[in-house]
């Protein structure tokens, strides 16, 4: 993978490796998954993916913004924004993988320490 950034091409490759489809069909399936999510969201429908996270559309009201360069006040119109909330499972996986704190390694498996797990 190119320097720490995953793209559609990498997802396509993973799907291709996993299922016996052609690269073309794999690419098409990746695209369809994304476009179905987009369509649900544009209908205003939340998309919930268990153990990954949820995408919800939030309506923002009008407010007064300011051009930071000129200091001029400009109205920011009401608009819809997409909010992603990561699931606890996803947060847990990321933290377990990236945390340097050696005390928390899962292999240590101290039976008594289960009371104080992550919030």
């Amino acid at each position: 993978m190119a320097e720490g950034t995953m793209t559609r091409a990498d997802l396509t490759e993973a799907v291709y490796q996993e299922v016996g489809l052609s690269r073309n069909d794999s690419a098409h399936l990746v695209e369809t998954v994304l476009s179905e999510i987009v369509e649900a969201l544009t209908r205003g429908e939340p998309v919930k993916v268990s153990s990954f996270g949820s995408f919800t559309v939030r309506q923002k009201g009008q407010r007064i913004g300011r051009n930071p360069k000129t200091g001029q006040e400009v109205p920011i119109l009401p608009r819809k924004v997409l909010v992603f909330r990561a699931s606890h499972v996803l947060k847990g996986k990321i933290n377990r993988a990236l945390s340097k704190a050696p005390a928390r390694t899962p292999e240590a498996g101290e039976p008594g320490s289960s009371a104080s797990s992550t919030p």
Partner: peptide, 11 residues
């Protein structure tokens, strides 16, 4: 696979 790959990349 798609969501696992995204998860693994982030991890």
């Amino acid at each position: 696979t798609i969501f696992d790959e995204i998860t693994n990349a982030l991890a």
